[in-house]
Amino acid sequence: MVERIEETGKAHTTENLVEIHSLKKYFNIKKDVTVKSVDDISISIRKGETFGLVGESGSGKSTLGKTVVGLQAPTSGEIIYNGQNVLQLDKETQRNVNKEMQIIFQDPHASLNPRMRVGDIIAEGIDAYKLFKGKDRTNRIYELLAQVGLRPEHAKRFPHEFSGGQRQRIGIARALAVEPKFIVADEPISALDVSIQAQVINLMEELKESEGLTYLFIAHDLGMVKHISDRIGVMYLGKMMELSNSDDMFRNPLHPYTQALLSAIPKANPRAVKRERIVLQGDPPSPTAPPSGCRFRTRCPHAMEICALQEPQWKEVEDEHWVACHLY
């Protein structure tokens, strides 16, 4: 077994809001077939930051997000919220912690109940925690609608009467209703038009300031993640490949996978210095049978002998820049 040095082990001046220690989430799809969606991941998310999580589909980033907020029970590992181990709390405290961690979903069409009016959808959390009643409840709904740029009269409408961007705003208002501190945004913009994406991102940034939120922002679009994230983690087949602050990641990507991902971002300026495009060969291997050693070795242009034999260590190569690769 490779001993892992936990990234959280290092003392930071900034406070961690959420810490994840060796989190694993396995799914048994058949008797002997296990998908290791999230395999031994440890990260910490600092208060007030936006932590971007990227990776291609099937890398386990959404599973990680859902497990962190408690929608799925982890196979093993710890989730620490504000110094408390979420999985070992008594019912009452757990309910309060649950309230402070919310999630925004990817598909704005599937995330709103088509049979409920927008007002009631937004008030879901208000009703569950009995925060407001009667007139106060109505006023709170209006306030939330205004906060996400919708109008009071929209409260009486049904979800299918809105556009994708508006629906995503409703989803955000629903999460805000219980005054969360930590929000997992599970690809909140990938189902939207590019023009609408910017609006929703700006709204999320405004709300982060005004409400003092911390985000775990999951996406597969590195360009957008760079724009809003303070730090970025790159996942591949259930493992963390690289983690650093967002400027470092873009200036000096260490992991060959990250390098390939970055080279795929289209440039806004066609006359800019061309970065060499690294094209990965083949599809990601099946998550039921990941390659031995380093999981990326089958598609890695720098694969060496050791990559098949030993899993690379998770180490801090530069200050605050972590990578799991035998090159370093």
């Binding site: 859902k66 961690m101 919310q102 999630i103 109940n113 879901e124 959390g125 569950a128 925690y129 999460a175």
Partner: peptide, 9 residues
């Protein structure tokens, strides 16, 4: 939306 409801308590 069911997951969201669950999350919202």
């Amino acid at each position: 939306y069911v997951l969201a409801a669950e999350k919202l308590g």
